[in-house]
């Protein structure tokens, strides 16, 4: 599959009074496949929005290069084929939902009102299309944002914190819409720090910290390596020492013992060993590795260099 986004050593340096030159984005090399939902993760201030602005061509990189849908960064042509919904977007409040679509459509020269109505229906705003944006809830504003982003039938969508500050129902509506985009063959680039959402819908993710890519890859691969928790009753200290389970953490849990072992270790052998020591196994619970764990693990690592 062709790459929707490809960057090599993308760097953005800002000069600040306090800290001198700061690389907000530091030698960033991204690879986003066409047709996938790509999660771009990182704590606040990691450089996510700056990266997106560079990809959109709104600002130019200090160094490095990249392509979006095969076009060089900053090429105006690509703007016909992409869309962007910023974090908590603000649209002209006095406009109605329909007028918003008309306005953004006019930037492309799109005047097809049937299409606009269809888009409104798709984001479930067709009944509210005559209300002004100031009357819209946050979720509705997010949905009208998605509707406007579909006006030009984009191949690639950039969504910045698409579910930020929304209630659970709105979350779900947005999620479904995004999944629908993938089904239509669009590439979706989501920048977010709401990991549960990303985990649910993304195919691949990149975690960025201090402007650098810390992890990048398929979600399934990144989340390999869960752990197993074994709760044990009536154990003896000596027996446990004898067991010598590699990588096991022993956590005192009340009078019980909690064994935390890597997924790939020989659980059966552990169980046998526990039993052999005369202790009783209360439960064996496999814990899948979660994105949150990965994220915290990555982000809490000290800044390199």
């Amino acid at each position: 599959m062709a790459a929707a986004i490809e960057t090599k050593d993308l760097t953005k340096t800002y000069r600040t009074k306090a800290a001198g030159n700061v690389n907000v984005v530091d030698n960033l090399s991204l690879h986003v496949e066409e047709g996938e939902i790509f999660g771009f993760l990182g704590p606040n201030g990691a450089g996510k929005t700056t990266t997106i602005k560079m990809l959109l061509g709104i600002i130019s990189p200090t160094s490095g290069e990249g392509t979006v849908l095969g076009e060089e960064l900053g090429d105006m042509n690509v703007h016909h084929k992409i869309s962007y919904v910023p974090e908590r977007p603000y649209y002209y409040e006095y406009m109605t939902g329909f007028e918003i679509l008309k306005f953004y459509g006019s930037l492309f020269g799109i005047t097809d009102t049937d299409r606009m109505n269809a888009l409104l229906e798709r984001v479930n705003l067709h009944r509210d299309k005559s209300k002004t944006i100031s009357q819209y809830s946050k979720g509705m504003q997010q949905r009208i944002g998605l509707a406007q982003s579909l006006l030009n039938d984009p191949k690639l969508l950039f969504l910045d914190e698409p579910t930020g500050g929304l209630d659970p129902i709105a979350h779900r509506e947005i999620r479904d819409l995004i999944l629908g985009f993938r089904d239509e063959g669009r590439t979706v680039f989501i920048s977010s720090h709401e990991l549960s959402e990303v985990e649910l819908i993304c195919d691949r993710v990149a975690i960025i910290n201090y402007g650098k890519i810390a992890r990048q890859g398929k979600l399934t691969e990144l989340l390999k390596g869960g752990r197993v928790e074994i709760t044990v009753e009536g154990y003896s200290e000596q027996a446990l020492k004898d067991m010598n389970i590699p990588d096991a953490k022993i956590l005192p849990a009340g009078g019980d013992l909690l064994l935390d072992a890597p997924e790939e270790s020989d659980i059966n052998a552990v169980i046998d060993a526990v039993r052999g020591s005369g202790a009783r196994i209360v439960s064996v619970v496999p814990r899948k590795k979660r994105l949150e764990d990965l994220f915290v693990e990555t982000v809490s690592a000290p800044k390199a260099g």
Binding site: K53, H79, P86, P89, Y90, Y104
Partner: peptide, 14 residues
């Protein structure tokens, strides 16, 4: 501040 500029500049608008 309201980020409208980004939605507009990400369209084919110089």
């Amino acid at each position: 501040e309201r980020r409208t500029i980004y939605t507009i500049l990400s369209k084919p608008v110089m």
